[in-house]
Computed example of a mutant assay.
Amino acid sequence: MTGDPDEALLARVAKGDPAAVRALMARKLPRILSLAQRMLGDPAEAEDVAQETFVRIWKQAPKWKPGEAKFDTWLHRVALNLCYDRLRRRREIATDAPPEQVDEGPAPDRRLLAADTSVRVSGALQRLPERQREAVVLCHYQELGNIEAAAIMGVSVEALESLLSRARRALRGALADMVER
C-alpha cells in the first residue's frame, strides 16, 4: 500500500467486484458531480461528465499502477478534462438560447434572495477564465488543499495561489453591488 486510501477499493474494482464499484461511486460521485456542475453550470452535462468519469475508472482500473499517482488526483483530472472538452465544444456551437432555469415556485424573501445570490455567484464564476474557475472550484467548492489542487492542475502552488488571487479579485468586482446591499 502507498497510503492512498482508495488503492484497495480500486484493486477490487479492477477485479470486477460490484460492491467495490458501488462503494467507490458512493464515495466519489457527489464530489465529481459538484465539480462538474460548478465548471459547466449545467446539471445534465455534469451528470454526463460524472458518468463518463466513472466509465473511465472502470475501464482503467485493471491498468492502475499503485504509487504512480494518487487516485483522487487522477479522478479530478479526468473529470476536469471532460469538462474542458464540453466547454470547448460549447464555444464551437454558438447559441442564442438562454440557459434553462428551474422555477421553484413562490418562496419566502430569504429563499429568493439566496437563490438570486447563488445565481449571481454562479454566473460570476462562469465568467472567470477557465484556469481561475478551476482553481476556485478545486479549492473552495471541492475543499482541496493548495498542494493537491496544484497537483491536479499541473501547476506550482505559487501559480495556483496567483490564479486564486486573480479569481477572487474578479469575483469581488463582479459581485461588489451585492456587498453594498
Rank of each mutant, 00 (worst) to 15 (best):
T73C: 07
R77F: 05
P99F: 06
F71C: 01
D72S: 15
D72V: 11
C83F: 00
R91Y: 03
A79D: 02
D85E: 13
R91A: 11
R90P: 01
V102K: 12
A69K: 05
D103A: 12
C83E: 05
K70E: 06
V102A: 13
F71P: 05
R90A: 08
D96H: 13
I93W: 06
C83D: 06
R77T: 12
E100I: 14
R88K: 14
Y84L: 14
N81F: 04
T95H: 12
D103W: 11
P98G: 07
A79G: 05
R86H: 09
A79M: 04
E100Y: 10
L87Q: 10
R88V: 11
R77P: 01
D85F: 04
P98L: 11
A94E: 14
D103M: 09
D96Y: 13
A79I: 01
R86N: 05
D103S: 14
R91P: 00
A94D: 09
P99M: 10
R88M: 07
T95C: 11
D96S: 12
L87K: 10
A94S: 15
T95V: 12
P99Y: 03
V78N: 00
R90F: 07
R90Q: 13
A94V: 15
T95S: 15
L75R: 04
D72Q: 09
E92R: 12
Y84C: 00
C83S: 03
E92S: 11
D85W: 07
A69E: 04
D85Y: 10
R88H: 13
R89Q: 10
T73V: 13
R88T: 10
D72P: 00
Y84R: 15
W74D: 05
L82K: 08
R88W: 11
D103E: 15
E100N: 09
L82Y: 04
K70I: 03
A79W: 00
R90S: 06
K70T: 02
C83N: 03
L75E: 05
T95M: 07
